[in-house]
Design a protein around this nucleic acid. Structure first.
Lengths: 133, 133
DNA sequence: GCGTGATTACTCGGATACAAGATGTCCGAGTTTGAGCGG
DNA sequence: CCGCTCAAACTCGGACATCTTGTATCCGAGTAATCACGC
């Protein structure tokens, strides 16, 4: 029960892209270098974000990744779901009737967390901090 | 990022023990049978709960597991932490100064979830449901 | 009837096996920019 | 100066390799109740 490193990388990359100029794409090499991770691995992670429609990739020379137009709407939860999947954190494997009271409690708790993550946008962070990235 | 099955088993076992008579120990065989899991594996999980001080094991014939005296205080969070460990869900591996804004957001969200789990006790569940176990 | 020992029904802990997922690397393929070169 | 070609700088995607963790099993050891047996 832990967020994967991939999520860590994805969040930081999104923060960086949000803080950067939105027009120019940023190469995966630069992004990887900042976070001390191999470019190919980071590229694999970012592909998921592309498929989720948050960023787009520009191929060719001076290519890289760039935010899509709808940024500002992108929340922490969106990014986490894109990487980790959006399945619920808990599956009761025991069949005691239609619904499990334990599952109900845990899912309610999970919902609390997701609500917080849903309300936090990347753009909020950029505002409140002087970019030390 | 998912709760392990071990946590599932632990929660259900605790619910069962809470609902059962507190005096008599319950054999691991019965507990395992209910949840369709091997007794040896379940025993390994319950050992963690013993070490966390929630239950105690009675060796010998008619032995088994039994709640400790302080039940009623035991929350979902206690059980989950006993199984999964109490490390935080997120570690920022990037060093941008003293604290990471991303980490702050995620940990705050985690705290929301934990708060909910901390306030839910096993005894609450037993009351509100007619035991279908 | 009563003590004593053996049997039985349990849990405990370590060692081990297995599977799945996270992490990371490598390489071939496609794409765009830009430089070089010939006209 | 213009256009063509080619190399370089990129990302993309699949196929691996590796490592960690979760899941599960097996077995020997210890323990307590109970049963059997002999006195």
């Amino acid at each position: 029960m832990k967020f994967s490193k991939a999520t860590d990388y994805a969040l930081h990359t999104m923060l960086f892209l949000t803080a950067a100029t939105p027009d120019k794409p940023v190469g995966v090499q630069l992004l990887a270098e900042k976070q001390k991770v191999s470019p190919t691995y980071l590229s694999k992670i970012l592909t998921k974000l592309v498929k989720a429609g948050m960023i787009e990739s520009i191929t060719g020379v001076n290519g890289g990744y760039r935010l899509k137009r709808n940024w500002g709407d992108i929340s922490f939860l969106d990014i986490i779901h894109a990487i980790e999947g959006s399945a619920s954190l808990f599956d009761c494997s025991f069949d005691h009737g239609p619904d499990c009271p334990i599952q109900r409690v845990v899912l309610a708790a999970e919902e609390k967390m997701e609500e917080h993550l849903r309300n936090k946008k990347m753009s909020d962070l950029v505002q409140e901090m002087n970019i030390v990235f």
